[in-house]
Simulated scan of single mutants.
Amino acid sequence: MNKRSVLERIRGGLIVSCQAVEGEPLHGADTMTKMALAAKMGGAVGIRANGAEDIRRIKACTELPVIGIVKRVYEDSEVYITSTLREVEEVVEAGADIVAVDATMRRRPGNLSTSAFLERVKREFPDIVLMADISTLEEGIMAEQSGADVVASTMAGYTAYSRPSAGPDLALVANLVNTLTVSVVAEGRIRRPEEAKACIELGCWAVVVGSAITRPQDITRDFVEEIRKAISR
């Protein structure tokens, strides 16, 4: 698919993030592929997946557009979502339709600036749809200027300098939509259907939801905490 057709397929829809890191009970391509198939049955228009094997399996089984990432920890950086060209290449080779990278201003592995990294990615992989995961409006503007095709609010509240919030940062989403010319995707702390609806009403191209759908340990914890509140009264 070309860039335009990829973006049109996800327009106005729900993308489900199907991820489980090593050590979690649902970790593994078999489980994540089943999770992605369930999301497709529910009407998801795309999947966000972590790791080459998960990307390949989910894309083959669901035939939905896949936003691909590789999470890898580097000792010299807080950035761990597709943070170097090594991870970008892995995502591209796995066949992801969109490559998502951390585009925050934090120090990257090798001390490469984020703008230089994005420009290098676009130069070496000119045909990919590049999604920039940002935490502030300034990062979104920088990402667009550096060649990102899509900007996502994924990292809002997850950097030390961005505004903390219990729910999605709708103010940031609105500012991104009103300021940028590239497509804006809402992601991060979206837990209720009403919040996803609000993001679309603000003008987002699409909405990504993860934990509220695909992380049963987190969903269970929310229920347990509310029950404990009732008991402690």
Results as ranks from 00 to 15, higher is better:
Ala174Met: 04
Gly43Val: 12
Val70Arg: 00
His27Trp: 01
Glu194His: 09
Gly140Asp: 14
Val73Pro: 00
Ser17Leu: 06
Ala186Leu: 09
Asp127Asn: 14
Ile190Trp: 04
Tyr74Gly: 01
Ser183Arg: 12
His27Met: 00
Leu37Ser: 04
Ile227Phe: 15
Leu130Phe: 08
Ser211Val: 01
Glu138Ser: 14
Trp205Phe: 10
Met35Thr: 05
Arg123Asn: 12
Met35Phe: 07
Leu26Arg: 00
Ser115Gly: 01
Val177Cys: 10
Arg9Asp: 13
Asp127Ser: 15
Ala152Thr: 10
Val121Cys: 03
Val21Met: 09
Lys59Arg: 15
Val129Thr: 15
Glu225Pro: 00
Met131Pro: 03
Pro126Val: 08
Ile69Pro: 02
Arg215Ala: 12
Arg120Met: 14
Ala96Phe: 07
Ala116Asn: 12
Asp76Cys: 09
Leu172Phe: 04
Phe223Gly: 05
Leu7Ile: 13
Thr214Pro: 10
Ala198Lys: 15
Leu7Ala: 11
Ala44Trp: 03
Val45Cys: 15
Glu144Met: 08
Glu89Gly: 00
Thr31Gly: 02
Gly46Lys: 03
Arg120Trp: 09
Thr181Lys: 15
Ile47Arg: 04
Glu90Gly: 02
Leu180Ile: 08
Ile227Lys: 10
Gly110Trp: 04
Glu119Ala: 08
Val101Thr: 15
Lys122Trp: 07
Ala29Leu: 00
Ser113Tyr: 05
Thr82Met: 06
Leu172Gly: 07
Ala49Met: 03
Asn175Ile: 06
Cys18Val: 14
Arg108Cys: 06
Leu118Pro: 00
Gly51Met: 03
Phe117Tyr: 15
Cys18His: 06
Gln19Gly: 07
Arg48Tyr: 04
Ser77Asn: 07
Gly95Asn: 04
Cys61Ser: 15
Ala166Thr: 07
Ser165Tyr: 02
Glu75Cys: 06
Arg56Thr: 01
Leu130Asn: 08
Ala44His: 03
Pro126Gly: 00
Arg56Trp: 04
Thr154Arg: 11
Glu63Ile: 01
Leu112Asn: 00
Ala143Phe: 11
Asp76Pro: 01
Glu89Cys: 00
Ala49Trp: 03
Ala103Trp: 06
Ile190Leu: 10
Asp133Gln: 10
Pro25Arg: 03
Gly46Ile: 02
Met142Trp: 02
Arg11Pro: 05
Gly12Met: 06
Val173Asp: 08
Cys204Ser: 11
Val182Thr: 15
Leu202Asp: 09
Thr136Lys: 03
Gly203Ala: 08
Thr114Leu: 09
Gln19Met: 09
Pro168Val: 07
Lys229Val: 03
Glu195Cys: 08
Gly28Asn: 04
Thr114Trp: 02
Gln217His: 14
Lys34Asp: 06
Val173Trp: 03
Arg56Asn: 03
Ala156Ile: 03
Asn175Val: 06
Ala156Glu: 09
Ala96Trp: 02
Asp30Lys: 10
Met131Phe: 05
Asp30Gly: 02
Pro126Asp: 12
Thr104Lys: 06
Ile128Trp: 05
Ser211Gln: 11
Met1Leu: 14
Ala36His: 09
Val99Phe: 04
Glu226Pro: 00
Tyr161Thr: 13
Lys71Glu: 07
Val208Gly: 04
